[in-house]
Amino acid sequence: MKTRALGKSGFEVSEIGLGCWQLGNDFGPVEDEEATKILQTATGEGIHFFDTADVYGGGLSEERIGQWRKTLSKPPIIATKVGRNGELYPNGYSKVKVKQSLQASAKRLGVEAIDLAQLHCVPRDVLFSGDILAWMEDLKQEGVIKHFGASVEMLDEAMFCCEHAELASLQILFNVFRQDAVDSLLPLAEKNDVGIIVRLPLASGLLTGKMGLNHTFNAHDHRSYNKDGAAFHVGETFNGIPFEKGVVLVEALKEKLPEDQNILDVSLRWILDQPQVSSIIAGASRSSQVMRNAAASNLPPLSKELHSLLADFYRAEVRNEIRGGI
């Protein structure tokens, strides 16, 4: 497993990380034994960067990570998020409440100070006021957190955050079906030494190439109840693309790829070919998925021709299908 710098934090993180939303049972039930197996498999594969949030399973994901962390001789780097629990979202934000939420997360994780605390897709007006970023800077100085970043939904939000002098990282939606950050955000992130953490690298599973038009999802899975944005931002599910259209687009792209290229490998490697990316936080409900994702770290870079093909396909076929903005 290769490592990369996480912006100005001083952390070296595995370029494939583990997204731990599933460990909150928000995609369907994951038993304690399987959750531990997923975490153990990740460390066995060289993954030492884990991303969670206080709202994943109402704190269950953090609790599971905290219990597992106690068994390790060398603790990994753990990032969590703040800003979407009922005490704060959508209009209860204050520095005191943000601090209390972060302290509760630290307790569940079993740490004195959180390695990386990320604003969790807070409302645009709250973000753009600038106050909440100043609070995070204060909480870093107070020792509640070691570093802070932001997880955002839109590129203009990312560009705004990227200008904050103390911001260590940005977590964004980014994949071969959402490429706009390449020309706009990534150069600015490099200039300002902000690490890029990629979520939805496989567009909620579309880019595994294994989903057909008749694929069904557990009722507790956001891919069932949020496919049209009923519960939260539509871009967080299937990249904002209608599921049926997404399946058709994946099949069309598979037809264009060289015979020796797998769409899942191509999708992960394309992201890693962007030097500004620090880590891909790929989620997993089974340990076998962790191993499959981790293998991308050792794949060779894609050819210039393949990069051109993917860029052309995105602009011509995919971009106009994305709902909710970019």
Rank of each mutant, 00 (worst) to 15 (best):
H120E: 00
L257P: 00
L272T: 00
L88M: 02
A219F: 13
A104Q: 09
D273F: 00
R292M: 04
D312V: 15
E45V: 15
V266D: 02
A113L: 08
A134W: 14
G24H: 11
L302H: 00
H220P: 09
A53T: 13
K95C: 02
L6M: 07
G59H: 08
P75F: 06
G44C: 05
Q289V: 01
I38Q: 04
P301K: 02
R269K: 06
T52Y: 07
L155V: 06
H164F: 13
A189L: 04
I77D: 03
G110D: 10
L213M: 11
Q100W: 12
N91E: 15
E137C: 11
V152D: 09
P29I: 14
Y314M: 11
A316T: 07
L18R: 06
L306H: 03
K8Y: 10
T71Y: 08
L310E: 00
E259N: 10
L170C: 06
D125S: 13
V98W: 04
V247P: 06
G28A: 13
R64G: 00
V126G: 06
E305I: 09
K37I: 03
P76L: 13
T36V: 13
A316P: 01
W68R: 15
H233Y: 05
G46M: 06
D265S: 08
L185F: 03
Q171L: 13
K8Q: 12
T80G: 02
N320K: 02
Q171P: 07
S308P: 12
P123Y: 03
F313I: 00
L207C: 03
C161Q: 07
N91I: 02
D228A: 14
G205A: 02
A53N: 13
H120D: 08
G86M: 06
E157P: 05
H215W: 02
L116C: 04
R319N: 03
S278N: 01
V13G: 14
K70D: 05
A284S: 08
S169W: 07
S14R: 12
T80Y: 14
L207F: 03
K146Y: 10
F27I: 14
A165M: 03
G240A: 10
I322L: 08
F128G: 10
A117V: 02
V55W: 09
H215S: 12
D228I: 05
M1I: 02
A203R: 00
A219R: 15
S9H: 09
D131A: 11
A104N: 12
I38V: 03
E163F: 08
A231I: 13
G10M: 12
K95S: 04
S9Q: 12
E255R: 06
K227C: 14
I172K: 04
N298I: 03
R108Y: 14
E12N: 13
R69Q: 09
L116A: 15
K191H: 11
Q179A: 02
E137N: 06
E317M: 11
T216R: 14
A282N: 14
D265L: 06
G92N: 09
A252F: 03
D312H: 15
G10E: 11
D193K: 10
R269F: 10
